[in-house]
Design a protein around this nucleic acid. Structure first.
Lengths: 258, 258
DNA sequence: CGCTTACTTGAGAGACTTCAAGAGTTGTGG
DNA sequence: CCACAACTCTTGAAGTCTCTCAAGTAAGCG
Protein backbone atom coordinates (compact mmCIF):
# COMPACT_ATOMS: atom_id res chain seq x y z
CA UNK A 1 0.00 0.00 0.00
CA UNK A 2 2.77 2.38 0.82
CA UNK A 3 4.48 1.32 -2.36
CA UNK A 4 5.10 4.43 -4.30
CA UNK A 5 5.23 6.83 -1.42
CA UNK A 6 8.03 9.37 -1.30
CA UNK A 7 9.03 11.08 1.90
CA UNK A 8 10.46 14.54 1.60
CA UNK A 9 11.58 16.15 4.81
CA UNK A 10 11.67 19.55 3.21
CA UNK A 11 9.06 20.76 0.81
CA UNK A 12 10.41 24.01 -0.57
CA UNK A 13 14.05 23.75 -1.62
CA UNK A 14 14.55 20.43 -3.35
CA UNK A 15 17.57 19.27 -5.36
CA UNK A 16 16.75 20.10 -8.94
CA UNK A 17 18.71 17.89 -11.29
CA UNK A 18 20.59 14.63 -11.08
CA UNK A 19 21.82 12.19 -13.68
CA UNK A 20 19.62 9.22 -14.46
CA UNK A 21 19.91 5.83 -16.10
CA UNK A 22 16.90 4.53 -18.00
CA UNK A 23 17.94 0.89 -17.99
CA UNK A 24 17.81 0.83 -14.19
CA UNK A 25 14.72 2.99 -13.75
CA UNK A 26 11.86 1.34 -11.86
CA UNK A 27 9.44 2.80 -14.37
CA UNK A 28 11.28 1.52 -17.46
CA UNK A 29 8.72 -1.10 -18.44
CA UNK A 30 5.92 1.44 -18.61
CA UNK A 31 8.05 4.15 -20.19
CA UNK A 32 9.86 4.88 -23.44
CA UNK A 33 12.51 2.16 -22.92
CA UNK A 34 9.81 -0.48 -23.08
CA UNK A 35 10.22 -2.68 -26.13
CA UNK A 36 13.28 -1.06 -27.67
CA UNK A 37 16.80 -2.41 -27.88
CA UNK A 38 19.72 -1.85 -25.51
CA UNK A 39 21.40 0.43 -27.98
CA UNK A 40 18.41 2.73 -28.17
CA UNK A 41 18.04 2.75 -24.41
CA UNK A 42 21.59 4.02 -24.21
CA UNK A 43 20.58 6.70 -26.65
CA UNK A 44 17.77 7.65 -24.30
CA UNK A 45 20.20 7.70 -21.38
CA UNK A 46 22.30 10.32 -23.10
CA UNK A 47 19.18 12.27 -23.95
CA UNK A 48 17.51 12.14 -20.58
CA UNK A 49 20.35 13.60 -18.63
CA UNK A 50 18.32 15.25 -15.94
CA UNK A 51 15.39 14.71 -13.70
CA UNK A 52 13.34 17.11 -11.71
CA UNK A 53 11.73 16.81 -8.32
CA UNK A 54 8.39 18.34 -7.58
CA UNK A 55 6.82 18.97 -4.22
CA UNK A 56 3.10 18.42 -3.81
CA UNK A 57 1.05 21.10 -5.61
CA UNK A 58 4.12 22.27 -7.51
CA UNK A 59 3.50 23.15 -11.14
CA UNK A 60 5.52 21.24 -13.75
CA UNK A 61 4.33 23.37 -16.63
CA UNK A 62 1.52 25.78 -17.27
CA UNK A 63 -0.88 26.04 -20.16
CA UNK A 64 0.43 28.34 -22.93
CA UNK A 65 4.02 28.06 -21.77
CA UNK A 66 6.41 27.54 -24.69
CA UNK A 67 7.02 23.87 -25.31
CA UNK A 68 10.58 22.65 -24.99
CA UNK A 69 10.52 19.39 -23.06
CA UNK A 70 8.48 16.29 -22.76
CA UNK A 71 8.52 14.64 -19.37
CA UNK A 72 8.38 11.07 -18.13
CA UNK A 73 7.10 10.35 -14.64
CA UNK A 74 9.75 8.55 -12.54
CA UNK A 75 7.62 8.25 -9.45
CA UNK A 76 4.75 10.06 -7.82
CA UNK A 77 1.50 11.21 -9.40
CA UNK A 78 0.49 14.28 -11.35
CA UNK A 79 -2.68 15.72 -12.77
CA UNK A 80 -3.27 17.81 -15.86
CA UNK A 81 -6.02 20.35 -16.22
CA UNK A 82 -7.11 22.97 -18.66
CA UNK A 83 -9.72 25.69 -18.45
CA UNK A 84 -13.12 24.73 -19.80
CA UNK A 85 -15.30 27.12 -21.74
CA UNK A 86 -16.27 28.88 -18.55
CA UNK A 87 -12.66 29.39 -17.61
CA UNK A 88 -12.90 26.88 -14.77
CA UNK A 89 -10.14 24.30 -14.64
CA UNK A 90 -11.12 20.85 -15.81
CA UNK A 91 -8.96 17.84 -14.98
CA UNK A 92 -8.00 16.03 -18.18
CA UNK A 93 -5.97 13.19 -16.72
CA UNK A 94 -3.97 11.63 -13.94
CA UNK A 95 -0.44 10.41 -14.58
CA UNK A 96 1.76 7.84 -12.85
CA UNK A 97 5.19 6.26 -13.22
CA UNK A 98 6.37 5.76 -16.80
CA UNK A 99 3.74 7.97 -18.42
CA UNK A 100 4.66 10.83 -20.71
CA UNK A 101 3.65 14.43 -20.15
CA UNK A 102 3.58 17.34 -22.55
CA UNK A 103 2.60 15.43 -25.70
CA UNK A 104 -0.35 17.74 -26.30
CA UNK A 105 2.09 20.66 -26.66
CA UNK A 106 3.81 19.45 -29.82
CA UNK A 107 0.99 20.60 -32.06
CA UNK A 108 0.91 24.27 -31.12
CA UNK A 109 4.40 24.63 -29.63
CA UNK A 110 2.76 25.64 -26.36
CA UNK A 111 1.46 23.54 -23.55
CA UNK A 112 -2.25 22.80 -23.86
CA UNK A 113 -2.72 22.05 -20.18
CA UNK A 114 -1.32 22.86 -16.77
CA UNK A 115 0.26 19.97 -14.90
CA UNK A 116 0.84 19.82 -11.16
CA UNK A 117 2.12 17.19 -8.75
CA UNK A 118 -0.49 15.46 -6.60
CA UNK A 119 2.26 14.39 -4.22
CA UNK A 120 6.03 14.66 -4.09
CA UNK A 121 7.12 13.32 -7.46
CA UNK A 122 10.00 13.11 -9.87
CA UNK A 123 10.04 13.45 -13.64
CA UNK A 124 12.69 13.06 -16.33
CA UNK A 125 13.20 16.01 -18.64
CA UNK A 126 13.60 15.17 -22.32
CA UNK A 127 14.58 18.13 -24.51
CA UNK A 128 12.28 17.77 -27.47
CA UNK A 129 14.61 19.08 -30.18
CA UNK A 130 17.35 16.65 -29.16
CA UNK A 131 14.76 13.92 -28.88
CA UNK A 132 13.72 14.62 -32.46
CA UNK A 133 17.31 14.26 -33.60
CA UNK A 134 17.55 10.92 -31.84
CA UNK A 135 14.33 9.73 -33.41
CA UNK A 136 15.65 10.82 -36.77
CA UNK A 137 18.67 8.61 -36.21
CA UNK A 138 16.83 5.68 -34.70
CA UNK A 139 13.79 4.18 -36.37
CA UNK A 140 12.85 2.01 -33.36
CA UNK A 141 12.89 5.06 -31.12
CA UNK A 142 10.63 6.92 -33.53
CA UNK A 143 8.29 3.97 -33.70
CA UNK A 144 8.20 3.73 -29.93
CA UNK A 145 7.30 7.40 -29.69
CA UNK A 146 4.55 7.10 -32.27
CA UNK A 147 3.10 4.26 -30.27
CA UNK A 148 3.16 6.42 -27.16
CA UNK A 149 1.37 9.26 -28.96
CA UNK A 150 -1.18 6.85 -30.38
CA UNK A 151 -1.68 5.33 -26.95
CA UNK A 152 -2.47 8.74 -25.56
CA UNK A 153 -5.10 9.21 -28.28
CA UNK A 154 -6.71 5.90 -27.36
CA UNK A 155 -6.70 6.83 -23.69
CA UNK A 156 -8.43 10.10 -24.41
CA UNK A 157 -10.99 8.24 -26.48
CA UNK A 158 -11.63 5.93 -23.57
CA UNK A 159 -12.30 8.92 -21.36
CA UNK A 160 -14.63 10.20 -24.02
CA UNK A 161 -16.87 7.21 -23.60
CA UNK A 162 -17.91 8.68 -20.26
CA UNK A 163 -20.39 10.85 -22.11
CA UNK A 164 -23.47 8.74 -21.70
CA UNK A 165 -22.48 6.82 -18.60
CA UNK A 166 -24.15 7.20 -15.24
CA UNK A 167 -22.21 8.50 -12.28
CA UNK A 168 -21.72 5.02 -10.87
CA UNK A 169 -20.42 3.76 -14.19
CA UNK A 170 -17.98 6.66 -14.54
CA UNK A 171 -16.61 6.16 -11.06
CA UNK A 172 -16.27 2.41 -11.59
CA UNK A 173 -14.39 3.12 -14.82
CA UNK A 174 -11.92 5.35 -13.04
CA UNK A 175 -11.34 2.90 -10.21
CA UNK A 176 -10.80 0.02 -12.62
CA UNK A 177 -8.55 2.14 -14.83
CA UNK A 178 -6.34 3.07 -11.89
CA UNK A 179 -6.36 -0.53 -10.72
CA UNK A 180 -5.23 -1.77 -14.14
CA UNK A 181 -2.47 0.80 -14.35
CA UNK A 182 -1.11 -0.14 -10.94
CA UNK A 183 -1.27 -3.81 -11.86
CA UNK A 184 0.63 -3.11 -15.10
CA UNK A 185 3.36 -1.55 -12.99
CA UNK A 186 3.65 -4.48 -10.66
CA UNK A 187 1.76 -2.91 -7.79
CA UNK A 188 -1.43 -4.23 -6.28
CA UNK A 189 -4.42 -3.51 -8.45
CA UNK A 190 -6.63 -4.49 -5.56
CA UNK A 191 -5.49 -2.15 -2.80
CA UNK A 192 -4.14 1.27 -3.59
CA UNK A 193 -4.28 4.86 -2.55
CA UNK A 194 -6.34 7.46 -4.36
CA UNK A 195 -3.79 10.21 -4.83
CA UNK A 196 -6.33 12.76 -5.96
CA UNK A 197 -9.02 14.52 -3.96
CA UNK A 198 -12.71 13.76 -4.34
CA UNK A 199 -12.96 17.13 -6.03
CA UNK A 200 -10.38 16.14 -8.66
CA UNK A 201 -12.14 12.85 -9.27
CA UNK A 202 -15.46 14.62 -9.68
CA UNK A 203 -13.99 17.27 -11.90
CA UNK A 204 -12.33 14.64 -14.08
CA UNK A 205 -15.49 12.55 -14.35
CA UNK A 206 -17.87 15.45 -14.77
CA UNK A 207 -19.58 14.89 -11.43
CA UNK A 208 -19.82 16.99 -8.31
CA UNK A 209 -17.82 16.26 -5.20
CA UNK A 210 -21.06 15.37 -3.43
CA UNK A 211 -21.91 12.78 -6.05
CA UNK A 212 -18.47 11.19 -5.72
CA UNK A 213 -18.85 11.04 -1.99
CA UNK A 214 -22.30 9.48 -2.23
CA UNK A 215 -21.23 6.99 -4.88
CA UNK A 216 -18.17 5.87 -2.93
CA UNK A 217 -20.43 5.51 0.08
CA UNK A 218 -22.84 3.40 -1.94
CA UNK A 219 -20.04 1.19 -3.28
CA UNK A 220 -18.83 0.73 0.29
CA UNK A 221 -22.33 -0.10 1.56
CA UNK A 222 -22.68 -2.66 -1.21
CA UNK A 223 -19.35 -4.17 -0.08
CA UNK A 224 -17.86 -3.66 -3.54
CA UNK A 225 -15.05 -1.64 -2.05
CA UNK A 226 -13.50 -0.95 1.34
CA UNK A 227 -12.64 2.64 1.97
CA UNK A 228 -10.55 4.46 4.54
CA UNK A 229 -9.92 8.04 3.63
CA UNK A 230 -8.07 7.73 0.33
CA UNK A 231 -7.03 4.12 0.81
CA UNK A 232 -9.25 1.89 -1.25
CA UNK A 233 -9.59 -1.85 -1.70
CA UNK A 234 -11.59 -3.34 -4.53
CA UNK A 235 -13.41 -6.14 -2.68
CA UNK A 236 -15.43 -7.17 -5.71
CA UNK A 237 -13.92 -5.86 -8.96
CA UNK A 238 -16.23 -8.17 -10.86
CA UNK A 239 -19.27 -6.25 -9.70
CA UNK A 240 -17.67 -3.00 -10.76
CA UNK A 241 -17.00 -4.44 -14.19
CA UNK A 242 -20.52 -5.80 -14.31
CA UNK A 243 -21.75 -2.26 -13.77
CA UNK A 244 -20.13 -1.38 -17.07
CA UNK A 245 -20.79 -4.40 -19.21
CA UNK A 246 -24.45 -4.96 -18.51
CA UNK A 247 -27.01 -2.20 -18.59
CA UNK A 248 -30.49 -2.54 -17.08
CA UNK A 249 -32.16 -5.09 -19.34
CA UNK A 250 -29.28 -5.28 -21.82
CA UNK A 251 -27.06 -8.27 -22.48
CA UNK A 252 -23.37 -7.52 -22.53
CA UNK A 253 -22.97 -8.63 -26.11
CA UNK A 254 -20.57 -6.59 -28.18
CA UNK A 255 -22.49 -5.76 -31.29
CA UNK A 256 -20.92 -2.77 -32.91
CA UNK A 257 -21.86 -1.10 -36.18
CA UNK A 258 -23.87 2.06 -36.68
CA UNK B 1 -23.80 25.23 -49.63
CA UNK B 2 -23.41 22.47 -52.15
CA UNK B 3 -19.68 22.91 -51.89
CA UNK B 4 -18.33 19.55 -51.01
CA UNK B 5 -21.08 17.46 -52.48
CA UNK B 6 -20.14 14.45 -54.54
CA UNK B 7 -22.55 12.88 -56.98
CA UNK B 8 -22.18 9.20 -57.62
CA UNK B 9 -24.50 7.71 -60.17
CA UNK B 10 -23.77 4.24 -58.97
CA UNK B 11 -23.37 3.34 -55.35
CA UNK B 12 -22.09 -0.22 -55.36
CA UNK B 13 -19.19 -0.70 -57.80
CA UNK B 14 -16.92 2.31 -57.53
CA UNK B 15 -13.45 2.73 -59.03
CA UNK B 16 -11.07 1.73 -56.31
CA UNK B 17 -7.68 3.33 -56.88
CA UNK B 18 -6.30 6.23 -58.87
CA UNK B 19 -3.06 8.17 -58.72
CA UNK B 20 -3.06 11.40 -56.76
CA UNK B 21 -0.93 14.51 -56.43
CA UNK B 22 -0.72 16.14 -53.02
CA UNK B 23 0.45 19.52 -54.25
CA UNK B 24 -2.75 19.97 -56.23
CA UNK B 25 -5.15 18.45 -53.71
CA UNK B 26 -7.93 20.74 -52.54
CA UNK B 27 -7.38 19.52 -48.99
CA UNK B 28 -3.62 20.12 -48.96
CA UNK B 29 -3.71 23.06 -46.55
CA UNK B 30 -5.50 21.07 -43.90
CA UNK B 31 -3.56 17.88 -44.51
CA UNK B 32 -0.02 16.52 -44.17
CA UNK B 33 1.44 18.76 -46.92
CA UNK B 34 0.62 21.83 -44.85
CA UNK B 35 3.75 23.61 -43.69
CA UNK B 36 6.36 21.33 -45.23
CA UNK B 37 8.64 22.01 -48.20
CA UNK B 38 8.12 21.16 -51.85
CA UNK B 39 10.66 18.38 -51.66
CA UNK B 40 8.84 16.67 -48.85
CA UNK B 41 5.50 17.07 -50.60
CA UNK B 42 6.99 15.20 -53.56
CA UNK B 43 8.02 12.53 -51.10
CA UNK B 44 4.39 12.32 -49.98
CA UNK B 45 3.25 12.12 -53.59
CA UNK B 46 5.32 9.02 -54.13
CA UNK B 47 4.04 7.58 -50.89
CA UNK B 48 0.38 8.33 -51.39
CA UNK B 49 0.02 6.56 -54.67
CA UNK B 50 -3.58 5.58 -54.30
CA UNK B 51 -6.92 6.83 -53.17
CA UNK B 52 -10.08 5.04 -52.34
CA UNK B 53 -13.69 5.95 -52.91
CA UNK B 54 -16.35 5.12 -50.39
CA UNK B 55 -20.09 5.12 -50.87
CA UNK B 56 -22.30 6.35 -48.06
CA UNK B 57 -22.37 3.92 -45.12
CA UNK B 58 -19.37 2.04 -46.50
CA UNK B 59 -16.85 0.96 -43.91
CA UNK B 60 -13.27 2.23 -44.32
CA UNK B 61 -11.89 0.09 -41.54
CA UNK B 62 -13.27 -1.86 -38.63
CA UNK B 63 -12.20 -1.95 -35.03
CA UNK B 64 -9.61 -4.69 -34.37
CA UNK B 65 -8.64 -4.96 -38.02
CA UNK B 66 -4.85 -5.15 -38.44
CA UNK B 67 -3.36 -1.74 -38.96
CA UNK B 68 -1.52 -1.15 -42.21
CA UNK B 69 -2.56 2.25 -43.54
CA UNK B 70 -3.34 5.67 -42.30
CA UNK B 71 -5.86 7.60 -44.35
CA UNK B 72 -6.32 11.24 -45.26
CA UNK B 73 -9.75 12.51 -46.22
CA UNK B 74 -9.77 14.00 -49.73
CA UNK B 75 -13.42 14.96 -49.69
CA UNK B 76 -16.59 13.87 -48.04
CA UNK B 77 -17.23 13.17 -44.38
CA UNK B 78 -16.69 10.15 -42.16
CA UNK B 79 -17.45 9.18 -38.62
CA UNK B 80 -15.57 6.96 -36.21
CA UNK B 81 -17.19 4.93 -33.49
CA UNK B 82 -16.21 2.31 -30.99
CA UNK B 83 -18.26 0.16 -28.66
CA UNK B 84 -18.76 1.59 -25.19
CA UNK B 85 -18.74 -0.56 -22.08
CA UNK B 86 -22.22 -1.79 -22.86
CA UNK B 87 -21.18 -2.83 -26.32
CA UNK B 88 -23.21 -0.06 -27.94
CA UNK B 89 -21.38 1.98 -30.56
CA UNK B 90 -20.30 5.40 -29.43
CA UNK B 91 -19.33 8.04 -31.98
CA UNK B 92 -15.83 9.32 -31.19
CA UNK B 93 -15.47 11.88 -33.94
CA UNK B 94 -16.43 13.30 -37.30
CA UNK B 95 -13.80 13.79 -39.99
CA UNK B 96 -13.62 16.08 -43.00
CA UNK B 97 -11.20 17.00 -45.80
CA UNK B 98 -7.52 16.92 -44.84
CA UNK B 99 -7.97 15.09 -41.57
CA UNK B 100 -6.09 11.89 -40.79
CA UNK B 101 -7.74 8.60 -39.90
CA UNK B 102 -6.31 5.55 -38.24
CA UNK B 103 -3.87 7.27 -35.89
CA UNK B 104 -5.33 5.49 -32.89
CA UNK B 105 -4.28 2.16 -34.43
CA UNK B 106 -0.54 2.73 -34.25
CA UNK B 107 -0.38 1.89 -30.56
CA UNK B 108 -1.83 -1.60 -30.66
CA UNK B 109 -1.31 -2.41 -34.34
CA UNK B 110 -5.07 -2.82 -34.67
CA UNK B 111 -7.72 -0.24 -35.34
CA UNK B 112 -9.29 1.12 -32.17
CA UNK B 113 -12.45 2.29 -33.87
CA UNK B 114 -14.69 1.56 -36.82
CA UNK B 115 -14.89 4.29 -39.45
CA UNK B 116 -17.66 4.68 -42.02
CA UNK B 117 -18.49 7.27 -44.67
CA UNK B 118 -21.36 9.63 -43.85
CA UNK B 119 -21.67 10.43 -47.54
CA UNK B 120 -19.83 9.49 -50.71
CA UNK B 121 -16.23 10.28 -49.90
CA UNK B 122 -12.66 9.74 -50.97
CA UNK B 123 -9.57 9.05 -48.88
CA UNK B 124 -5.86 8.70 -49.63
CA UNK B 125 -4.20 5.51 -48.50
CA UNK B 126 -0.80 5.90 -46.89
CA UNK B 127 1.01 2.61 -46.22
CA UNK B 128 2.31 3.10 -42.72
CA UNK B 129 5.55 1.14 -43.02
CA UNK B 130 6.60 3.12 -46.09
CA UNK B 131 5.48 6.30 -44.36
CA UNK B 132 7.76 5.44 -41.47
CA UNK B 133 10.69 5.05 -43.83
CA UNK B 134 9.95 8.44 -45.32
CA UNK B 135 9.76 10.03 -41.90
CA UNK B 136 13.04 8.39 -41.02
CA UNK B 137 14.58 10.08 -44.05
CA UNK B 138 12.88 13.43 -43.64
CA UNK B 139 12.91 15.28 -40.35
CA UNK B 140 10.30 17.86 -41.44
CA UNK B 141 7.92 15.08 -42.43
CA UNK B 142 8.39 13.42 -39.06
CA UNK B 143 7.79 16.72 -37.30
CA UNK B 144 4.66 17.34 -39.30
CA UNK B 145 3.35 13.92 -38.35
CA UNK B 146 4.09 14.46 -34.67
CA UNK B 147 2.16 17.71 -34.85
CA UNK B 148 -0.77 15.86 -36.41
CA UNK B 149 -0.73 13.24 -33.66
CA UNK B 150 -0.48 15.91 -31.00
CA UNK B 151 -3.33 17.83 -32.62
CA UNK B 152 -5.49 14.76 -32.41
CA UNK B 153 -4.73 14.51 -28.69
CA UNK B 154 -5.74 18.13 -28.17
CA UNK B 155 -8.95 17.58 -30.12
CA UNK B 156 -9.85 14.61 -27.96
CA UNK B 157 -9.16 16.69 -24.88
CA UNK B 158 -11.50 19.36 -26.18
CA UNK B 159 -14.23 16.80 -26.57
CA UNK B 160 -13.49 15.66 -23.05
CA UNK B 161 -14.47 19.04 -21.70
CA UNK B 162 -18.04 18.13 -22.53
CA UNK B 163 -18.22 16.27 -19.25
CA UNK B 164 -19.81 18.93 -17.12
CA UNK B 165 -21.50 20.92 -19.84
CA UNK B 166 -25.23 21.17 -20.28
CA UNK B 167 -26.88 19.82 -23.40
CA UNK B 168 -27.17 23.29 -24.92
CA UNK B 169 -23.49 23.94 -24.29
CA UNK B 170 -22.45 20.65 -25.84
CA UNK B 171 -24.51 21.22 -28.93
CA UNK B 172 -23.22 24.78 -29.30
CA UNK B 173 -19.68 23.43 -29.00
CA UNK B 174 -20.24 20.97 -31.81
CA UNK B 175 -21.85 23.54 -34.10
CA UNK B 176 -19.05 26.03 -33.50
CA UNK B 177 -16.41 23.34 -33.95
CA UNK B 178 -17.83 22.30 -37.30
CA UNK B 179 -18.17 25.94 -38.28
CA UNK B 180 -14.52 26.64 -37.47
CA UNK B 181 -13.33 23.60 -39.37
CA UNK B 182 -15.28 24.59 -42.47
CA UNK B 183 -13.95 28.13 -42.20
CA UNK B 184 -10.38 26.78 -41.94
CA UNK B 185 -10.96 24.96 -45.19
CA UNK B 186 -12.23 27.99 -47.02
CA UNK B 187 -15.90 27.09 -46.88
CA UNK B 188 -18.60 29.09 -45.19
CA UNK B 189 -18.51 28.75 -41.44
CA UNK B 190 -21.90 30.38 -41.30
CA UNK B 191 -23.98 28.13 -43.52
CA UNK B 192 -23.24 24.46 -43.87
CA UNK B 193 -24.80 21.07 -43.98
CA UNK B 194 -24.88 18.73 -41.02
CA UNK B 195 -23.62 15.53 -42.58
CA UNK B 196 -24.52 13.38 -39.62
CA UNK B 197 -27.91 12.34 -38.30
CA UNK B 198 -29.38 13.73 -35.11
CA UNK B 199 -28.73 10.31 -33.63
CA UNK B 200 -25.01 10.56 -34.44
CA UNK B 201 -24.85 14.04 -32.96
CA UNK B 202 -26.56 12.87 -29.80
CA UNK B 203 -24.43 9.79 -29.54
CA UNK B 204 -21.28 11.85 -29.98
CA UNK B 205 -22.34 14.44 -27.41
CA UNK B 206 -23.77 11.98 -24.94
CA UNK B 207 -27.35 13.14 -25.39
CA UNK B 208 -30.46 11.44 -26.73
CA UNK B 209 -31.83 12.11 -30.16
CA UNK B 210 -34.85 13.74 -28.54
CA UNK B 211 -32.66 16.17 -26.65
CA UNK B 212 -30.83 17.13 -29.84
CA UNK B 213 -34.10 17.73 -31.58
CA UNK B 214 -35.44 19.84 -28.74
CA UNK B 215 -32.23 21.83 -28.41
CA UNK B 216 -32.03 22.56 -32.13
CA UNK B 217 -35.65 23.62 -31.95
CA UNK B 218 -34.87 25.93 -29.06
CA UNK B 219 -31.87 27.44 -30.87
CA UNK B 220 -34.13 28.02 -33.87
CA UNK B 221 -36.88 29.60 -31.74
CA UNK B 222 -34.29 31.91 -30.19
CA UNK B 223 -33.21 32.88 -33.72
CA UNK B 224 -29.64 31.79 -33.02
CA UNK B 225 -29.76 29.43 -35.97
CA UNK B 226 -31.87 28.81 -39.04
CA UNK B 227 -32.59 25.20 -39.75
CA UNK B 228 -33.94 23.31 -42.73
CA UNK B 229 -33.49 19.59 -42.39
CA UNK B 230 -29.74 19.22 -42.15
CA UNK B 231 -28.94 22.61 -43.62
CA UNK B 232 -27.99 25.00 -40.87
CA UNK B 233 -27.13 28.69 -40.72
CA UNK B 234 -25.56 30.24 -37.65
CA UNK B 235 -27.57 33.47 -37.44
CA UNK B 236 -25.93 34.56 -34.20
CA UNK B 237 -22.69 32.70 -33.52
CA UNK B 238 -21.90 35.20 -30.80
CA UNK B 239 -24.82 33.98 -28.72
CA UNK B 240 -23.69 30.41 -29.13
CA UNK B 241 -20.22 31.36 -27.94
CA UNK B 242 -21.75 33.32 -25.08
CA UNK B 243 -23.48 30.13 -24.02
CA UNK B 244 -20.06 28.65 -23.46
CA UNK B 245 -18.05 31.51 -22.04
CA UNK B 246 -20.48 32.80 -19.47
CA UNK B 247 -22.27 30.55 -17.06
CA UNK B 248 -25.29 31.70 -15.07
CA UNK B 249 -23.88 34.35 -12.76
CA UNK B 250 -20.26 33.80 -13.80
CA UNK B 251 -18.03 36.25 -15.63
CA UNK B 252 -16.17 34.82 -18.58
CA UNK B 253 -12.76 35.46 -17.05
CA UNK B 254 -10.16 32.81 -17.68
CA UNK B 255 -8.72 32.04 -14.29
CA UNK B 256 -7.05 28.67 -14.41
CA UNK B 257 -5.04 26.96 -11.67
CA UNK B 258 -6.15 24.07 -9.51
C1' DC C 1 -5.44 23.29 20.12
C1' DG C 2 -7.79 26.12 16.81
C1' DC C 3 -8.29 27.01 12.06
C1' DT C 4 -8.51 25.59 7.37
C1' DT C 5 -9.44 22.09 4.20
C1' DA C 6 -11.57 17.70 2.88
C1' DC C 7 -15.26 14.94 3.08
C1' DT C 8 -20.03 13.38 4.25
C1' DT C 9 -24.95 13.69 4.40
C1' DG C 10 -29.73 15.59 3.64
C1' DA C 11 -33.64 17.92 1.06
C1' DG C 12 -35.47 20.25 -2.84
C1' DA C 13 -34.98 21.77 -7.76
C1' DG C 14 -33.78 21.23 -12.48
C1' DA C 15 -32.19 18.74 -16.62
C1' DC C 16 -32.14 15.04 -19.36
C1' DT C 17 -34.04 10.52 -20.25
C1' DT C 18 -37.52 7.31 -21.16
C1' DC C 19 -41.73 6.02 -23.10
C1' DA C 20 -45.07 7.06 -26.52
C1' DA C 21 -47.08 8.87 -30.50
C1' DG C 22 -47.22 11.41 -34.63
C1' DA C 23 -45.38 14.09 -38.71
C1' DG C 24 -42.23 14.56 -42.38
C1' DT C 25 -38.69 12.41 -45.83
C1' DT C 26 -36.68 9.22 -48.60
C1' DG C 27 -36.40 5.30 -51.36
C1' DT C 28 -38.34 1.52 -53.92
C1' DG C 29 -41.36 -1.18 -56.65
C1' DG C 30 -45.39 -1.62 -59.16
C1' DC D 1 -45.02 8.63 -61.28
C1' DC D 2 -47.38 7.43 -57.39
C1' DA D 3 -48.01 4.63 -53.18
C1' DC D 4 -46.31 2.19 -49.51
C1' DA D 5 -42.67 1.18 -46.28
C1' DA D 6 -38.78 2.46 -43.67
C1' DC D 7 -36.41 5.78 -41.59
C1' DT D 8 -35.62 10.32 -39.49
C1' DC D 9 -37.10 13.82 -36.90
C1' DT D 10 -40.32 16.30 -33.76
C1' DT D 11 -43.15 16.82 -29.77
C1' DG D 12 -45.45 15.69 -25.22
C1' DA D 13 -45.68 13.79 -20.32
C1' DA D 14 -43.82 11.35 -16.51
C1' DG D 15 -39.77 9.61 -14.11
C1' DT D 16 -34.98 9.51 -12.59
C1' DC D 17 -30.60 11.11 -11.73
C1' DT D 18 -27.49 14.55 -10.58
C1' DC D 19 -26.92 19.22 -9.10
C1' DT D 20 -27.50 22.98 -5.91
C1' DC D 21 -27.88 24.69 -1.47
C1' DA D 22 -26.99 23.90 3.30
C1' DA D 23 -25.15 21.96 7.40
C1' DG D 24 -22.33 19.26 9.84
C1' DT D 25 -18.27 16.08 10.80
C1' DA D 26 -13.56 14.65 10.40
C1' DA D 27 -8.78 15.35 9.39
C1' DG D 28 -4.56 17.92 8.45
C1' DC D 29 -1.54 21.78 9.49
C1' DG D 30 0.31 25.51 11.83
Amino acid sequence: MNDMTFHAETRAPIPQSTAVICSRCVARNACLPSGIGTLDILRLDKLVGYRRRLARDEVLFRKDQPFAMIYAVRFGHLKSSRPDHRGHPHVTGFYMAGELLGLDAIYAGRHACTTVALEDSEVCEIPYSRFQESMHESLPLMQRFHAALSHEIVREQNALLHADMSGAERLATLLLDLSARYAERGYSGRRFRLRMSRADMGNYLGLTIESISRLLGRFRDEHWIALDKREIELLDPGRLEALLSAAPGEPGVSHEEE
